[in-house]
Computed example of a mutant assay.
Amino acid sequence: MLPATLNDTLAATTGVESATVRAYMRVLRENGYLSKHGRGIAAAKMSDRDASVCLTALAGAPRPLDVLPQVKHFSKTVFSQGDSGGLLGMLSEKGSGIDAVADLIRLYTQGLVEQHFETIEVEPAMRHSSMDVVFLTTAPVSIQFRIIKNGQLLEARMYQDPSDDITPPDLRSYRRVSGRTFDALAASFHATVREDL
Rank of each mutant, 00 (worst) to 15 (best):
P140W: 12
L28F: 08
L58G: 10
S178M: 13
F74N: 01
S84Q: 13
L68T: 09
A100G: 13
A43K: 03
A187D: 12
A191V: 01
P62I: 08
I147E: 05
F189S: 03
S163A: 15
P140K: 10
K149F: 12
N150Y: 05
I147A: 02
A102G: 12
R63E: 14
P64R: 00
P168W: 06
T56Q: 06
A59E: 03
S80N: 10
E155A: 04
L55H: 02
Y174C: 04
V193T: 03
Q152K: 13
I166Y: 13
L58Q: 04
K72Q: 15
A187R: 12
L34F: 07
Q81T: 10
R63N: 15
A184M: 04
G82W: 12
A42H: 05
R22A: 12
A61S: 15
T9F: 01
I147G: 00
D132T: 04
V122G: 01
G179V: 06
K45N: 05
T119K: 14
A139H: 01
R175A: 05
P168A: 11
A11N: 07
R176E: 13
C54N: 02
S188L: 09
V193R: 13
R194D: 12
A102V: 07
H128D: 14
E123W: 08
L104S: 02
V21R: 03
G85H: 11
Y174W: 11
N31I: 09
P162W: 11
R22N: 01
D8C: 00
T119N: 14
L136S: 15
V53L: 02
A57F: 05
T138S: 13
Q152C: 00
E155D: 04
P168F: 15
I166P: 07
T13E: 13
I105P: 00
V133E: 03
I41K: 08
V27D: 08
A100Q: 14
E123G: 01
T109D: 09
A43M: 08
L112R: 08
A139I: 02
G95T: 10
L6N: 02
Y108N: 15
H37Y: 11
K94Q: 14
S142K: 09
R157M: 14
L6H: 05
A125S: 12
A51G: 10
A4K: 06
A4N: 06
Y159W: 11
G111W: 09
Q152D: 04
Y174A: 15
M90S: 09
T56R: 08
G89W: 06
R63A: 14
S188I: 04
K76L: 14
T14F: 02
S47P: 00
V53S: 04
L6S: 06
S52K: 01
G38D: 04
